[in-house]
């Protein structure tokens, strides 16, 4: 017996296996980042003074990164739409763009980190920097994971397109869900750390 519902949805749940899997994983990610946001709230209300993000972080670079990540989200959904429209070239183009934008995000982020380090500001500076470096660091780790997954689908993983386009489309959708979640986290991280 083979494992059922790897490609086609199970009739009563209307879902294929990987979609259930990724949403369960994302639910646990909600708990992970939720715990970090809770930590942020608790440290902040307990702090004697808390620097305003505007005064200590580079808001223009942060804004740029937000726009980059949002753009990468729409290119991701376009890549998936390319698969649905059975247009492989379209998929390749938009997926490549997504990976490129993700790399831009990381480069900008590393400039931000670099300028902090060059001013001898490290996580141990205080509670704000501790939570700033931990949360953005963990988020950057998720971005790297997303790049690895997307690059696999763009490169060697794309062989599946010829054999089983439906399954490949599912994989792109699942990778997309993860990628949009990474974007979603940043949508909250940006105002909380940079603007408040």
């Amino acid at each position: 017996m083979d494992i059922p519902y790897t490609v086609q949805p199970r009739p009563d749940t209307g879902l294929y296996n990987a979609k259930v899997g990724i949403w369960l994983f994302l639910a646990s990610e909600v708990m992970l980042f939720g715990a970090l946001f809770s930590t942020y709230i608790l440290l902040r209300v307990g702090a004697i003074d808390w620097p305003e993000g505007v005064d200590v972080l580079n808001v223009p670079l942060g804004t740029l990164n937000t726009l980059v990540l949002i753009t990468s989200s729409i290119t991701m959904v376009m890549a998936w739409a390319g698969c649905v429209m059975k247009d492989f070239k379209r998929f390749r183009f938009f997926m490549g763009l997504t990976i490129l934008l993700a790399c831009v995000f990381l480069v900008v982020k590393s400039f931000e980190y670099g300028s902090k380090f060059s001013h001898h500001i490290y996580p141990k500076e205080g509670a704000f920097y501790a939570i700033y470096f931990t949360m953005t660091g963990l988020h950057a780790f998720h971005v790297i994971c997303g790049i690895v997954v997307n690059a696999y689908l763009w490169g060697p993983g794309a062989k599946l397109w010829k054999k089983n386009p439906a399954q490949f489309t599912n994989r792109v959708e699942v990778a997309g869900l993860f990628w949009h979640f990474v974007d979603l986290v940043w949508i909250f991280l940006f105002p909380v750390l940079y603007l408040l």
């Binding site: 749940t13 209307g14 879902l15 979609k19 259930v20 949403w23 369960l24 639910a27 646990s28 909600v30 708990m31 939720g34 715990a35 946001f37 809770s38 709230i41 608790l42 989200s73 729409i74 991701m76 959904v77 997309g176 869900l177 949009h180 979640f181 974007d183 979603l184």
Partner: peptide
């Protein structure tokens, strides 16, 4: 829209509602 939650299935709503409830309780 990007994650298509607006037209998703019951099972997934259930999982997400649970995790949102629990993570609201923590802080």
């Amino acid at each position: 829209y990007f994650m298509h939650l607006i037209s998703e299935k019951k099972t997934i709503y259930l999982v997400l509602i649970l995790s949102v409830l629990f993570i609201a309780g923590l802080p």
